[in-house]
Amino acid sequence: MKFPKFQLFPKRGIWARKIVQVLFFALIAFISVNHTLVRNGGGFDFLSSASLHALCPFGGVETMFQLLTTGGLIKKVRDSSIILLGLVLILSLLLGPVFCGWVCPLGTIQEWFGKLGRKWLGNKMYNKFVPRKLDQVLRYLRYGVFAWVLYATFTSAQLVFQSYDPYFALFNFWTGEATITAMLILESALLLSLLIERPWCKYACPFGALLGLSNLFRLFTIRRDAGACNLKGDACSMLCPMNIDISKKSVIRDHQCITCMECTSEARCPVKDAVYLGLGGME
């Protein structure tokens, strides 16, 4: 009698990414909960001094003007934010916005909601609600949000974005520190994730806007070997969470790529070695 082969992860996908996402989501959640417990006299000593602000590389962006002009940091931002920002930028120049695709817990939770949406709606309907032309325009909205955050933070020397930040709301909804606006934005992002993949990342995330620019300079890019590709379909484009038309390009330098690698031959692409993460290349 032959037993079926046991497969821990039966479907193709970038499991390394999913594991990294879970690890970072758990770490940030643990730190946030522990921070609250410590403030109330409980919690674990381990990482007890950490707050969400200490772990947010975007805080480094927000405080940069203050740091350069006065040598100080804006309220609540820690030195660690500057270091983490530096590391995220180095990673982005090497591999693209891997922070968005592999680390950011807000991106991760949107993906989890997206999985539900995809299950209910199916691949044909999910992530296809926004007309292509409108989608192309909306994608530049996040640069507007980024410019506004920089301007408002620079002029007020306060973490203005915290009042609107769904990431802060996600890990502070139990503390009462998250504003109603931030909670509503978080809820909207999660609900929209049931229809559209990563709506916050695509259309509004200011940090994603900054990191997305690294796609223009990154060392390793997603590359498609047109010679190896013998399909007329567009399997690689179909399941790109960021709706990038991979099947029409040889090098992906789209500002929306998050290096999730779901389009590669390691995951969705059915042709061996046709789509991969490789060194260099211009569009």
Partner: peptide, 24 residues
């Protein structure tokens, strides 16, 4: 890189210090 950064900044006490006391 990310865990290394988190471990390093925690070890150096940079989670607590806003600019080594530079913060407002």
């Amino acid at each position: 890189v990310m865990f290394g950064g988190i471990y390093l900044t925690a070890g150096l006490g940079w989670w607590q210090t806003a600019g080594g006391g530079r913060g407002a």
